[in-house]
Design a protein around this nucleic acid. Structure first.
Lengths: 261, 261
DNA sequence: TTTTGTGAACTAGTTCACAGCT
DNA sequence: AGCTGTGAACTAGTTCACAAAA
């Protein structure tokens, strides 16, 4: 059901930003519960727009954007419409303006400070990973329990601390987000430490179902599940070989409450 | 025209298709088009069952399984029912029997041989990652274009070859699956090489939309999108603080055809 | 014109609730 | 009795198609 937003009541004022949010909440939303799928697509749109911007494009229609990147134009419009009226009829969207809006919606206009818990292969790779936007995300520290690793730094110079100092450093370094890269059996305990330290957003790489308070956002990236679904696809030569079967993107996922394993 | 960009998985029911798997397809399926969501949950169920098996449990009902691991019992039954009748009324499911069935469905009863293309931080971490079941997945080789890395091996002893030898090694080593861990701008070219070498299943870590033939299964794990959705959650203190908001799982995702960026 | 924004229609996915088997 | 397997009901997400704006 289309919440309130749809019933035309939404004269919440387009474009004007009310500061309801205390912290950094620039854009006013028309609807409350926006799907994770929509949010993920926003990231995709942002990436596409950046490419177009680099090409020097000033404006783009949902139609063109969709054709260029194999998206659905109605979906683009609908996704954006949840957050405001960013387009101009007869023209399309102003590329740089829309990029700015999406960055704002996603909270990418403020910098997030990250730590990685678990200095194994994956944790070290994440800490040194240069794939995400450096101005929105800054890697600050790593934590591990292995005495040999403590006091050292990664190749990129990220220091490694004992987990016992997590709360202290989260506080002093204003850490926002933690990536959890410990073995499955240690994941719940590590998550508890992370939550106790005051972090409310966790990117979990442990193949485990974790439980945390409802206000902590846990996004799990499960490599085993991903690989196993490839295994399934191989076992089934079927697939959509019949038609143009396309499938855009999709995502990872998130969960909130209780959860285990 | 629906064509391109769709979601979930392939196009809606159009042509009927295939026959069941020829190769290693032991279980007979009742339905053709099974959702990616269902497949991902199968992996979760398998993990849960393994835990129960380790605890010595012989049988388990969907009810018990759901309570223990915060799943939905009707969904468990429905997911399993797509593939056969594995339960016994009045009893539940035989744990080890069901594990075997799920492994078979997911193709985990045959070993898959993997390569990683891109020997950067992430690629090396993947090659050495010990998180996935060693008997279903075997890491065989890595590929890179950086002359300095060639001829060396990873900590775990995986050799690194030039990308020019990809087709040769895929063939001689019977490689099944490739993980793609190169920078976004090089991803499409690397995918083309992988496809040309005969691989039909790719785990893509590049934050790029890739295009390949329809019969090649590409599963993208996009760390940037994951992080950005956490950023969104932080920007919006809201969340489901209102209710017991639960959100089961969800997944990564997959795509098939053309795709860019 | 062109292109947005959006109700309505449609499709996919989840949960309910119960007939029927053990 | 206990529990599966499954149609039916419901909820979520996507796509259509068009009125209204520029």
């Amino acid at each position: 059901m289309y919440t309130r937003a749809v019933t035309g009541e939404g004269c919440a004022g387009l474009g004007n930003h009310r500061f309801m949010g205390n912290r950094t909440t620039p854009v006013q939303f028309k609807s409350d519960k926006i799907s994770e799928l929509t949010i993920n697509r926003l990231s995709v749109y942002l990436r596409c727009l950046t490419l177009l911007s680099d090409e020097g494009l000033q404006t783009v229609s949902s139609q063109t954007l969709a054709e260029r990147f194999n998206l659905n134009s109605a979906q683009i419009r609908k996704d954006l419409a949840y957050f405001g009226e960013f387009g101009v009829r007869g023209v399309g969207y102003y590329v740089d303006e829309l990029r700015k809006q999406i960055r704002s919606i996603l909270g990418l206009d403020t910098q997030h400070r990250l730590v990685v818990v678990g200095a194994g292969n994956l944790g070290l790779a994440l800490a040194n990973y240069d794939g995400f936007s450096a101005d929105a995300f800054r890697m600050v520290a790593m934590f591990d329990t292995d005495a040999e690793k403590l006091g050292t730094t990664t190749k990129a110079g990220i220091p490694i601390f004992p987990v016992s100092r997590l709360a202290e450093i989260v506080d002093s370094e204003a850490i926002d987000i933690a990536a959890l890269a410990v073995p499955a059996h240690a994941a719940q305990a590590a998550l508890d430490d992370i939550v106790a330290a005051g972090i409310r957003a966790v990117l979990n790489f442990a193949p485990a179902r974790l439980s945390g308070p409802p206000d902590v956002k846990i996004k799990t990236v499960d490599l085993s599940i991903s690989l196993e679904s490839l295994s399934y696809a191989l076992a089934r030569p079927a697939a959509g070989s019949d038609s143009v079967g396309e499938t855009p993107d999709t995502i990872v996922d998130e969960l909130r409450e209780h959860e285990t394993v």
